[in-house]
Design a protein around this nucleic acid. Structure first.
Lengths: 240, 240
DNA sequence: CGCCGCAGACCTACGGCGTAGGCCTACAGT
DNA sequence: ACTGTAGGCCTACGCCGTAGGTCTGCGGCG
């Protein structure tokens, strides 16, 4: 982890971004939220997510650590912005011949992005709630599944099975459905309906406890397990 | 995350284990590796894995933080010991009518243990190499799959698909196969053969690049994706 | 022109973290 | 009785996030 002696050596690491040294007090540094996030992503790509510290990226920018707080709320906010930026960069694929083909291509596209920023999955999983871009991406996936004819609750199951296969979120997305009053959920969904129609639909479906009645983690685990074991048994019976 | 002001309040938290206050310099504290790990697990259960710090568990034991280092190598070592202890506690199930049933029951048993210690998956995933108990558990799973008639490489695929469904390890278990000289791998496998025959078999299979030729992450991703999508399409066609 | 408010930077300081390196004491082996 | 060592303790270092305060230049306004 962090050892005083070996951490010393990072002092000589070449700057990844701005080469200016600590500026004189009067000159504006021209910090922007986008610039900060950009450098943070670069640092994470180069040295892993644990290397992203306020002090490190401030040093990378030739700036005081506290200056960053003018532009981002806190460390957690920075991590959110980083993953949001990466996830927003996932390309959307054209519909294929079948929904399976479309879903397959879409997730391979996501994987291509994740491979460029391998730290993302880990950071996303550590964050409690999904970022806007993540929700929009989930909406894309939901649209493919629903458009392919999957029922609402089969789609819900699908999100759980595919969860880590996609990115790592989608696991506990709709926990609120269980204890949020239906009218609140409905109102929220109405606000979302324009931008994320499929997410809105699923929230409403979760809330009124109908076909999918909240989100039973045990049931989801068993569903996933059985689906996978069944697929494996098929392949075994078919002779590898 | 950690804020000076609010962290203050943790000072009044009740001890989870030993109630003695800081002992006089001369009395032996009777620290043991097992006792330390036990308290650390208790702390993680109560306040999450991030609450496990050397200082915190030393305080819980009424002992100086540095005293812990006599018994555990470092923080990472402590985390390894914690997960190892938890994983070792997973019960082994009796063989069922089919291998599918056996595998199902075994993983449900694992899940029961994980639910008692929800932090384990996260910690295990952050650790680079599996602990002995984890390897032994994987050996159990491998035995069920191979005993059920799955070929060596189908079993290998199965480990990847089921990965996060089991515990989170099993993902990159056999990376070494690609670049380790076969004779080294064979020697290592021979040493393991008594205690973990199935793991040994898979290492050898990985090493000589035969049926499964190393471990192609992309191929594993596609295999898992297709298996899951196929299962979902089956269920859709069957009308939910 | 003179004044003020404020945005955007900087600085200090605090309490947390892991742990290197050394110290002190009691006891076991000789 | 002597001595080595195991098992505690202590100090100190360099990290970390960030609360709270300060300085400075600029744009707006009387």
């Amino acid at each position: 982890m962090q050892t005083g002696s070996c951490a010393r050596s990072t002092g000589t690491r070449p700057r990844l971004w701005r080469v200016t040294t600590r500026r004189s007090r009067t000159a504006p540094a021209g910090l922007t939220r986008e610039g900060i996030v950009d450098v943070a992503i670069r640092v994470a790509d180069a040295d892993g997510p644990t290397a992203v510290s306020m002090r490190r990226i401030a040093q990378e920018l030739g700036v005081d650590p506290m200056s960053l707080y003018r532009h981002i709320g806190a460390k957690d906010g920075l991590l959110d912005l980083m993953t949001d930026t990466v996830v927003a960069g996932i390309e959307r694929v054209e519909p294929g011949a079948t929904w399976v083909e479309t879903a397959r291509e879409q997730m391979l596209a996501a994987r291509r992005t994740m491979l460029r920023h391998p730290w993302t999955a880990e950071v996303v999983k550590a964050r409690p709630i999904p970022t806007p871009a993540a929700l929009r991406y989930v909406d894309t996936i939901l649209g493919i599944l629903r458009g392919g004819g999957l029922s609402l609750d089969l789609t819900h199951h699908a999100l759980h099975v595919l969860g880590s296969r996609i990115l790592g979120f989608g696991q506990n997305l709709f926990d609120e459905g269980a204890d949020t009053p239906p009218e609140v959920a409905a109102a929220r969904a109405a606000g979302l309906a324009h931008e994320m129609p499929w997410v809105a639909e699923m929230i409403v479906g979760s809330a009124h406890g109908g076909a999918l009645g909240g989100c039973d983690d045990d049931a989801e685990f068993v569903f996933s397990l059985d689906l996978i074991l069944e697929g494996l048994e098929h392949r075994r019976a078919a002779g590898r």
